[in-house]
């Protein structure tokens, strides 16, 4: 680690850990709740050391019950706390679904705007780690589809560090997706306050380009960047946009990129039907139909339960499928 304000190199998991630590230092009302988050530091070690340093009242190993975790977080929020809930894996959020959708998302509205719900729900998500069933899902669309929730996904250590702090500061509930297969990938992180940083709900052009735009989030950002690199060898310049915020979508950034490159491919691991690709395609068709050279193409997971791990690579969007989709946008 280096001085506050200095730049250091961290893996994504460690960067989120550092961001959580900073958020807890900044505000004594920030709590961490979850299964195995205390003594063990979480199964991915994202909360490593937090219980040791902040105590068992602020970092709570909860009973094994996700509805309990989120429901209790709601009560704590009514009482003025800012809970950060860890759901151990993507597929384990469903026992909490009612608390998230009917309570957490709606309490501001239902209380006539009087109740804030500053609750963060962290979800390690996505495939590619060779896991058994329920450990590799991309279920962001359920929450994007739910009014009252904000939904974000980080893709790099720098964003993980920064975005988790912003999510904790939000007075709205934030579902915070962490691409678990990137937890160990390292990158530069500037520690300490950074007023000039991109706001939480802005997308980032992570690679500028001129011929087509590839939109991705979470673990798929790396796949999009690899595709852009491969396309360069073939003489094509791809722009890569990291969504970062899934709800709200940063439409100005998306529309601007689409207008410049005139071709758009959306990549996500989540199933296709009613996924973010569908939403982005509809919005872009509305905003810049006549400037597009081709319909927005989607490269997504298939509409099947996540497959057994020994064949998962066949199902995850990969570089070839992204390049094929880019080719299709040139075929119109």
């Amino acid at each position: 680690m280096s001085e506050p304000g200095g730049t250091t190199t961290l893996a994504l998991g460690a960067a989120i850990n550092a961001g959580l630590r900073q958020a807890m230092d900044d505000d004594p009302r920030v709590l961490v709740l979850g299964e195995d988050v205390g003594r063990l530091g979480g199964v991915f070690r994202v909360t490593d050391g937090l219980q040791k340093d902040f105590g068992g009242d602020r970092v709570v190993d909860t009973p094994l019950a996700e509805s309990g975790i989120v429901g209790a977080a709601i009560g704590l929020a009514v009482r003025g706390y800012r809970p950060v809930c860890e759901i151990q894996f993507d597929g384990f959020v469903y026992p909490a679904f009612d608390q998230v959708v009917s309570q957490l998302a709606k309490l501001r509205t239902r209380s006539g705007g009087t109740l804030a719900m500053p609750v963060v729900i962290r979800i390690p998500y996505g495939g590619g780690i060779g896991a058994v069933e329920h450990h590799s899902e991309s279920n962001e669309s359920y929450f994007v589809h739910t009014a009252g929730l904000r939904v974000v996904a980080c893709s790099s250590p720098a964003d993980g560090y920064r975005m988790i702090q912003e999510a904790v500061r939000s007075d709205d509930p934030v579902v915070f997706y962490e691409p678990k297969r990137r937890y160990w990938e390292k990158g530069p992180v500037r520690l300490g306050p950074a007023a000039d940083d991109l706001p939480l709900h802005r997308a980032r052009v992570v690679r500028p380009g001129t011929d087509a735009t590839v939109v991705a989030h979470g673990a798929m950002v790396r796949v999009a960047l690899d595709a852009a690199e491969a396309a360069r060898a073939e003489g094509r310049s791809l722009e890569v946009v990291d969504l970062r915020s899934l709800s709200p979508l940063d439409l100005p950034t998306l529309v601007d990129s689409a207008r410049r490159t005139r071709r758009v491919v959306v990549v996500h691991e989540a199933p296709r039907t009613l996924g973010l690709g569908a939403e982005i395609a509809a919005e872009l068709a509305d905003a810049c139909f006549y400037e597009l050279e081709a319909p927005v193409q989607r490269v997504t997971g298939y509409d099947v339960p996540y497959p057994p791990s020994r064949v998962e690579e066949d199902f995850l969007p990969d570089l070839d499928r992204v390049l094929d989709a880019v080719d299709r946008t040139f075929g119109y």
């Binding site: 690579e313 990969d318 570089l319 070839d320 499928r321």
Partner: peptide, 17 residues
């Protein structure tokens, strides 16, 4: 059918995603 066509398009070894 889409996945079948995709898998059939590989001649060499796959790159992991």
């Amino acid at each position: 059918a889409e996945l079948a066509a995709h898998l059939a398009s590989f001649t060499g070894p796959r790159e992991p995603g």
